[in-house]
Design a binder for these strands. Structure first.
Lengths: 171, 171
DNA sequence: TATTGTTATACTCTATAACTATA
DNA sequence: TATAGTTATAGAGTATAACAATA
């Protein structure tokens, strides 16, 4: 990875102490900000972005085992335990008996969990709208199109965000 | 924070299990990817993104005290110690005597440090170009313009990225 | 023997607060 | 008394590997 790369859009040797305007930098700083805002918005719901990601993935297909869900989210079985514990303690999901395998759990959202997921989506929408408040509707469409043309390193399942599962952001 | 927000661009209640195309999500996922790529690219130089950030800030005005530099980067004095230790051990900067205050250090880049910073900028340019490889020049300009219109929560000094100083990204 | 979920352990990173030497 | 830098300590998070139950 990180071998020779095409260097056409930006000159190769900028002023050493100065950074040219950079899509990478903008996207990185904005992405961090968005993550913080999402975490803040979810706090009243008692969950963190990683829980949101798990609930969302579970809602897409219920009855999955922890392992299956963990593979979808690229999470080690290990880390799934605490995450599922959290959500079960909050009453947002249940570990039910798996019909075919008595070792495994069949994960299922509770009605409360479905409600919280709904609210979490609304938080996400708020973050989106706050972020895009300075854009006309057409500009936002245009921006989405351009972002879609950026090279994604990890064309995994859509909706899977590798950075969503770290520790809660401090500061 | 996170109070009432305008909700015009996106309907407030999407399908609960499905996410509409979102600038926030795209920017967040791409930002995380960019961070990983930068870390990978810097590894051969023996530094991490946070060291890059510190070197860059130091290059802008040398002779600063650790505290002053830490304030620029929003880093507690505490965390500066290990960071400056790293860079001093690598021979990239020096703690010199402060002319006016014998408690403080005057931080200065070494020639090696200047060289490594230069190489780090080249890595950053590589990441930028890889990211934007699918864009025409005009599209990239357009994208930069649109990103600039997104609402920045933290209009601090330009070039300061709050998420740059966490632990090195695993996975 | 392999696999699911769990636990144990060591390790890293962080934050708070002490500490020292200057001011 | 306050400040610059440092160190100590405790806490949170992660990863690796062991473990029990089941396949």
């Amino acid at each position: 990875m990180m071998g020779p790369m095409p260097e056409d859009h930006v000159s190769a040797a900028p002023e050493p102490t100065t950074a040219p305007p950079s899509v990478a930098f903008a996207v990185s700083a904005l992405g961090f900000q968005v993550g913080r805002q999402l975490a803040e918005g979810l706090r009243p719901l008692g969950i963190e972005p990683r829980h949101f990601g798990l609930l969302r993935a579970l809602a897409i297909s219920e009855g999955q085992t922890q392992r299956a869900l963990g593979q979808t989210l690229n999470l080690h079985p290990n880390r799934m335990v605490a995450l599922v514990d959290d959500l079960e303690n909050l009453g947002l999901l249940e570990r039910r008996r798996h019909p075919a395998d008595r070792r495994a759990h069949a994960l299922a959202l509770t009605p409360t969990g479905r409600g919280v997921l709904q609210q979490a989506f609304e938080v996400a929408v708020s973050v989106e709208n706050a972020l895009c408040a300075g854009l006309e509707h057409a500009e936002r469409t245009e921006l989405l199109g351009l972002l879609g043309k950026l090279r994604h390193q990890d064309p995994t399942r859509p909706g899977v965000h590798p950075g969503l599962y770290g520790p809660p952001t401090s500061e």
